[in-house]
């Protein structure tokens, strides 16, 4: 009577890897859950101390191993580590896109936006929009 459900509709919606930050955007994503605001179950989150610490090779790894897109939920100006956080994170996105170009991966498969610690609805709508964009990409 065992049914394999890994071919369920969930796998059809694009798989998104979200990098969040421990102090700001991850609590924002938690908040979406707390308030039962729905987004696609194909969204997976890894939380880091600061979005400036994401290595481009991680992004590439994710895109090469089954993720359709990587979304960086950055701290923007709220970052408590560095006032240049947005700048640093942007450099990382650009560096990743360089790497992706070499592998013929559409640069739109990585995206960055600032997310605050109570940004529950914005997170859900980011996921919805980004999911739609990813679904439309054919690389």
């Amino acid at each position: 009577m065992s049914t394999t459900i890994n071919q369920s509709p969930a796998t059809k919606s694009p798989k998104i890897l979200v990098f969040s930050t421990d102090k700001i955007s991850d609590p924002g994503i938690d908040q979406a859950g707390l308030r039962k605001i729905h987004y696609a179950p194909s969204v997976y989150v890894i939380s880091l101390p600061c979005s400036s610490g994401i290595k481009p090779k991680w992004i590439l790894h994710a895109l090469e191993h089954g993720f359709d897109g990587v979304f960086i939920a950055a701290d923007g100006h709220e970052c408590s580590y560095s006032s240049r956080c947005a700048e640093h994170t942007n450099t990382i996105v650009e560096a990743s896109q360089e790497l992706m170009k070499e592998k013929n991966i559409n640069p739109r498969r990585v995206r960055m936006a600032a997310l605050c610690s109570v940004c529950a609805e914005p997170f859900a709508s980011h996921m919805e929009n980004y999911g739609k964009i990813l679904a439309s990409l054919e690389d």
């Binding site: 459900i5 969930a10 994503i29 938690d30 859950g33 039962k36 179950p41 989150v45």
Partner: peptide
């Protein structure tokens, strides 16, 4: 592993997929 705020609650509308996601997490 956060399977409540980032799994069972936001995906309470799709329990089966929530289970798949939880397995991944």
């Amino acid at each position: 592993v956060n399977i409540r705020e980032q799994c069972s609650w936001p995906h309470s509308d799709r329990p089966r997929e929530a289970t798949v996601k939880a397995a991944g997490l």
